[in-house]
Design a protein around this nucleic acid. Sequence first.
DNA 1: ACATAAAAAATGAATGTTTATTCTTTTTTT
DNA 2: AAAAAAAGAATAAACATTCATTTTTTATGT
Lengths: 195, 195
Amino acid sequence: MISQKKSEIKRAALVKATISLVNNQGFHAAPMSKIAKLANVSPATIYLYFENKQDLINQVYVEVKARFMDYAFKTYTETMTVEEGFKTVWYRIAAFKINDIEQGFFLSQCENTPMIEEHCRKQGLQYLNPLLDLWVKGQEQHIIKKIAPHILYANTIYPLAFLMNAQKRGDFKLTKQHLDTAYQCAWDSIKNNNA
Amino acid sequence: MISQKKSEIKRAALVKATISLVNNQGFHAAPMSKIAKLANVSPATIYLYFENKQDLINQVYVEVKARFMDYAFKTYTETMTVEEGFKTVWYRIAAFKINDIEQGFFLSQCENTPMIEEHCRKQGLQYLNPLLDLWVKGQEQHIIKKIAPHILYANTIYPLAFLMNAQKRGDFKLTKQHLDTAYQCAWDSIKNNNA
DNA sequence: ACATAAAAAATGAATGTTTATTCTTTTTTT
DNA sequence: AAAAAAAGAATAAACATTCATTTTTTATGT
């Protein structure tokens, strides 16, 4: 364990408590009082670290998104081929969502809620830039279809969110084999067939 | 206009108001009092039609989902070939989401919230059966990859939700051309390449 | 067709919680 | 001993839900 300022410990506990409560019943069932209790802290203490509830949620969102993207690009290097690079990142994203279901589910709850402010969402999107660059490279090499990045994302990364949520709900068990076929679908959807 | 019982009008107004308010700020900002006001109804009246707030949200969810799926399968017939049928349904789903952004966005907010009860979600899923049948037929004819329906859904229908939300946020303008390339991605991801 | 009484639907105001946030005091750190 | 961090209790507003009345609809007898 890396040593940490005491104050940082409290803040981290609050972040963790927020994620946990929001996951279990949604934003509306995560009152400040419960968050404080779960973090072993007085409600008043929350306001030392966050302006208000909206700020709390938004800060947690940006923080989790940053951790997520850090993890996603950890093993990726720019020297990889396009397909290698894409595969690497795709599997890392999947691994994060599988290994840290709490954080993954929190993010997917945030994805469509108007609670997250525009500029936080924008900031979260910025972390995706290396992947966008990789796609451009792939398009220049005629390996990847020349289509809008939103469509590339929608058909390769976004499907993972569905599979993770289905698994969390217990509808579906995502095995290694399923993961491999899901990857194949993702790649087939964006690879250039005229190559 | 088909004639409608007065009581049904009130109920419909409540459903509409709920969708509109939830869309604008999320579940937490759609209090019963505001829903009632927007529907031009007393708060007490809500409780004549719905047990409580949870019931209201869940009933609205099921209802919108039913309308959505009705629309999706309207022009589909079982005599179509697999690819025709899939294309038809896919474009209808897209059209619904484009033409009725309010309802589409409401559904996507529901998709990941724990506010929706398990059995309502299950019921919503049932409406999807004709598509699942079509996929099975496609698999028997070796036209579609032999993989779990969850993965087929994740890679063909789910991506549309992302594109619609991006458009609603103003990140992205979904043109006819974009839609066609998105369809091509969807189909490429699940069609059997060894055919 | 009409008056009327019973039933149903709808209401506005009231209730009792729950909530986010703040204030004053106490504890901990410097 | 001063400053910073944290606490618990207090506050005021917002909320879901209920209650006592009023309004509207329906059914009935003439």
